[in-house]
Design a protein around this nucleic acid. Structure first.
Length: 932
RNA sequence: GCCCGGAUGGUGGAAUUGGUAGACACGUCAGACUUAAAAUCUGAUGACCACACGGUCGUGCGGGUUCAAGUCCCGCUCCGGGUACCA
């Protein structure tokens, strides 16, 4: 039988589909297993061989778990909102939904050819209104919630309103911005005094009108409107991401970009900072990803300290080293700090304003990339709370407005950057560390004892910090504070192709639109308006399917909105009355295995954890971490091929002779190259300019190409699509080969050279089955097969996908090596082992050996260890650790007897050559080591 | 700079708890079959010395622990990824 993979794969894919073999429902008495792939964005280029790598691995796990008796949820869908489709729409005028549909069709088609066991009945698409209806609903819940720091969880906003009605602001502890009252529009609250600091009574609250109440509540909602800084490009009418800005100009078009405050929807992810950290402990993720998330949250413990300014106000700073307070000799504010104007003296004003102007033009990334310390004195000063000395105030780019309080107390003696700054501006460096001349060098030694620090003298960092905090708290100059690097996330995008907000405005007050789906209105172009309003602002009132209030919100949600909860929708994808019925999410629970790239470490993985925790807090689901175990597949790199053109000619010289000429190295399409040999006719036909190419061949009469491993890209002609390989070798070969390539988590070059070996393996097993007979399995066969069962099972349990293929190859080679026809009975188990990797062929062979039903539903075989017991063991006998000869002994021989035999062996005597044996180590079943 | 990975034949990689380094596969070479090629099958294939028996060296580098180290410890080098004036 020739291995006719085209026919086999087509037949079985049809049979599975007809039998609804991958359709899954909740079955109460069956254990569940949820295997999920990271949500793909359907790009126009289709899949290349790197994409299916993770899908193949997860599909193997899904199939393996089914064999093991689990009810497996293994869905697929598309994260289908996004920029490329919008970009294409801008260029062509075609609605992004059209492009998106074409792309998803292509992806689905490519995936189906590879034989994945997805339940396509559960497919979801984020751009489908029946899906984003629920994304909007979750947004609504966030809007209607606040975070209670006392209970460390989200609660409905009504409960906050109740608390305000009862006790005003006095008995609640909501998560909010520091000094949130400073963001209030004071015109709204004329009766609040100038130094209002957030406290209001129940009487105050009850006297507020709707507008006032709304403004206050906005400070506590989990999604809220706030002014935040963005890179605004007036010319393009859009906001740009940090990496789209170069030298203060837009990367596209080179238009000027400036920092601008814009009123945008925000997500209060910082409320969950602590839980996002502690939740990591129980997750089975790689340490590097957990560590990256910890760094991203960036918890640091310290204190806030208030310094009085010479203008009567206060500057608050955050520091992790309150113990070094006596070393403060200047203060630095971020250029954007609110008090900058106030503290600038007339003579410094011009210079200060120039500095601020320059800083404004740079993107955040550029500012941080600046290595040289720059800054300028304001002329104003603050008073040191303990020494009463006057401390000058500067502004500098290295202080970030968005971190801490946007201001630092500079301690040049103990901080490298502060020290450099002090030296540059000739500021004194107060000596606060015993025995260290901090005029000469910084002291970062944690064990250094403090001097010149009042009550803190003689203490080391560890004892001094709590002592300093106590002093600060007693004197009212500051208090303990835990600060996070994590910032609240901007949730508005000035784009068309995203979820519309379920929000309208009455005046400036946002109103949540409940229970109505807001679909995207049609617009005449997908560009911002002339006034720089987002594309949705082009829609007239009648273009909106739902229009309420004075105007609709015209921003859309970011890409991560839909992908933050999609794994829940798969559990109940067609539900029209809930995002996911609680009974379904209780059944399926967390994702047991999540497979995908590591590029989502700080985006998707953080946001979806946030939303999961939130939905759990409100009781909509029963778990607060989405992904229990995660594996990150490595990148697949391309292997490019090169030809060498003799300069100024159309002669091409083979790789081994290229040095004899002066040549130019050119990428050549990898489809014209097999095992580094160039298809000469194909090459000539590939391009006009190559049509009369001549070749200087190698000594073997062929043209050898050079090669290099690079990123897979069109311009390097090294992109390999799965379709070509499925066409040439079949899906089963592709599946096995991608796994055989090496450990899933490692990056590796894609190289089709080895694919023949895997294809041959499948052909060999097909031939083995063809020649098999109905008879009792021999002990040799059983030993080989059960060895494979043991190895394959244990490797799959630890997600070692590559060695499974080797184990099956060894079994097949060993069975062929018996030189007898095989028993169908023995082969049955082997075929089940094969089925997660090569399901189509396994079905075909299963039929051949008389298996019942579909092999994909067969029970995974158990290892019978009695077949594995060997009678003899071949011991390597080593002398001082070096193996010299081998000794075959009965497996059950006790260690002391093994030692005796080894001591008396003639080879031992020869090796020892008269020397005395000092010691013999016998590890039963493994090794004998003779020391002498 | 900091954090996290990694380095094993000509190539991809294996060695799961310290116990025969190089499984499996590719490639290469030789042979069988063939008019020939492809396909298939058989054998060899870490380096070095040796006709051979056999021996020496060998898992990025330098030390160490151990009867025994790719694996554990200390100190480096190089490569990849993430992240960064984070107070």
């Amino acid at each position: 039988m020739e291995y006719d993979f085209r026919r086999i794969e087509k037949d079985w894919q049809e049979a599975w589909e007809k039998g609804l073999k991958y359709k899954v429902d909740e079955i109460e008495d069956k254990p569940k297993f949820y295997v999920l792939d990271m949500f793909p964005y359907p790009s126009g280029a289709g899949l290349h061989v790197g994409h299916p790598l993770g899908y193949i691995a997860s599909d193997i796990v899904a199939r393996y778990k089914r064999h093991k008796g689990y009810n497996v949820l293994h869905p697929m869908g598309f994260d289908s909102f996004g920029l490329p489709a919008e970009q294409y729409a801008i260029q062509t005028g075609q609605h992004p939904a059209v492009t998106t549909e074409a792309n998803t069709d292509r992806y689905r088609d490519q995936m189906q050819k590879i034989g994945f066991s997805f339940d396509w009945n559960r497919e979801v698409m984020t751009s489908d209104p029946s899906y984003y209806k629920w994304t909007q609903w979750i947004f609504g819940r966030l809007f209607e919630s606040w975070f209670d720091l006392d209970q460390n969880k989200a609660r409905p906003i009504n409960e906050l309103i109740n608390a305000f009605e009862q006790n005003g602001y006095f008995s609640v502890n909501p998560s909010c911005d520091d000094n949130w009252w400073e963001d209030l529009d004071m015109d709204l609250f004329p009766h609040f005094e100038e130094h209002f600091s957030g406290s209001f009574t129940a009487t105050d609250w009850n006297s507020f009108n709707e507008e006032q109440k709304n403004a206050l509540l906005m400070q506590f909602r989990l999604t809220y409107l706030a002014d935040s800084e963005v890179n605004w490009c007036p010319e393009l009418g859009t906001v740009l991401a940090n990496d789209e800005v170069k030298d203060g100009l837009s990367e596209r078009g080179g238009h000027p970009v400036e920092r601008k405050k814009m009123r945008q929807w925000m997500m209060r992810i910082t409320a969950y900072a602590e839980r996002l950290l502690s939740g990591l402990d129980d997750l089975n993720w790689t340490d590097s990803i957990k560590e990256a998330q910890r760094n991203w949250v960036g918890r640091s413990e310290g204190a806030v300290i208030r310094f009085k300014t010479n203008r009567g106000g206060n500057i608050e700073v955050f520091t992790t080293r309150p113990d070094t307070i006596y070393g403060v000799s200047f203060m630095v504010l971020a250029p954007e700090h609110d008090l900058v104007g106030d503290l600038t003296s007339e003579e410094n004003r011009e210079e200060v304003e120039a500095y601020i102007e320059a800083a404004k033009k740079k993107s955040e990334r550029e500012r941080q990339g600046e290595k040289e310390v720059t800054g300028v004195a304001l002329g104003g000063s603050v008073v040191h709370p303990f020494t009463g000395e006057e401390v000058p105030v500067y502004i500098a780019e290295y202080v970030l407005a968005g971190y801490g309080t946007g201001a630092i107390m500079a301690v040049p003696a103990g901080d490298e950057r502060d020290w450099k700054f002090a030296k540059k501006f000739g500021i004194e460096v107060p000596a606060i560390f015993k025995g260290v001349d901090t005029d000469e060098e910084v002291c970062t030694d944690e064990k250094a004892k403090l001097v010149g620090s009042g009550e803190l003298n003689g203490l080391k960092k560890k004892e001094a910090i709590p002592a300093a905090i106590e002093i600060l708290e007693k004197s009212g100059h500051g208090e303990k504070r835990i600060n996070y690097r994590l910032r609240n996330a901007v949730f508005s995008r000035q784009r068309y192709w995203g979820e519309p907000f379920p929000i309208c405005y009455e005046g400036d007050i946002p109103q949540l639109i409940e229970d109505e789906l807001i679909t995207l209105p049609s617009v005449d172009a997908y560009l911002p308006t002339k006034d720089g309003e987002p594309p949705l602002a082009r829609a007239a009132k009648e273009d909106w399917p739902v229009f309420k209030g004075d105007r609709m919100e015209t921003n859309t949600m970011p890409g991560w909105a839909g992908s933050s909860w999609y794994f829940l929708r798969y559990m109940d994808p067609h539900n029209e009355s809930a995002f996911c019925d609680r009974s379904k999410s209780d059944y399926w629970g967390q994702v047991d295995l999540y497979v995908g790239g590591a590029e989502h470490t700080t985006g998707h993985l953080l946001y979806s954890r946030f939303w999961t925790k939130f939905l759990c807090d409100l009781g909509f689901i029963g778990f607060d971490e989405p992904f229990k175990t995660m594996i990150n597949q490595g990148m697949i790199l391309g292997r490019s091929s090169f030809v060498y053109r003799v300069q100024g000619t159309s002669k091409f010289v083979s790789y081994e002779k290229r040095k004899e000429y002066s040549t130019q190295r050119l990428h050549v399409d990898i489809n014209l190259v097999e095992n580094d040999k160039l298809d000469l006719d194909g090459f000539k036909a590939s391009r006009e300019e190559y049509s009369n190419a001549e070749f200087i061949l190698g000594d073997d009469g062929t043209y050898t190409c050079g090669h290099e491993v690079e990123k897979m890209s069109k311009s390097k002609y090294n992109v390999q699509t799965p379709d070509e390989l499925v066409e040439k070798y079949g899906a089963d070969t592709l599946r096995c080969y991608e796994m055989f390539l090496g450990p899933l988590t490692q990056s590796k070059p894609w190289d089709t050279q080895g694919i023949n070996g895997v294809h041959n393996f499948l052909r060999k097993i097909a031939r083995l089955v063809e020649g098999s007979e109905t008879k009792v399995a021999s002990s040799d066969e059983l030993r080989i097969v059960h060895k494979a069962i043991e190895k394959v099972s244990s490797d799959l349990e630890r997600y070692a996908f590559n060695t499974v293929v080797s184990a099956m190859m060894i079994a097949v080679n060993d069975l062929i090596g018996l030189k007898k026809s095989c028993s169908k009975e023995a082969l049955k188990d082997l075929i089940v082992l094969l089925s997660p990797y090569a399901p189509h062929l396994a079905e075909e062979l299963w039929k051949e050996v008389g298996g019942k039903g579909f092999v994909i539903e067969a029970v995974w075989p158990d290892v019978n260890s009695q077949y594995l017991v060997a009678e003899d063991v071949t011991y390597p006998v080593s002398f001082n650790g070096k193996v010299r000869f081998k000794l075959t002994l009965p497996a059950d021989m006790p260690a002391d007897e093994v030692e005796k035999v080894a001591r008396e062996n003639e080879n031992t005597l020869k090796q020892m050559d008269g020397r005395e044996i000092r010691k013999v180590i016998v590890v039963p079943g493994r090794i004998i080591n003779i020391v002498g």
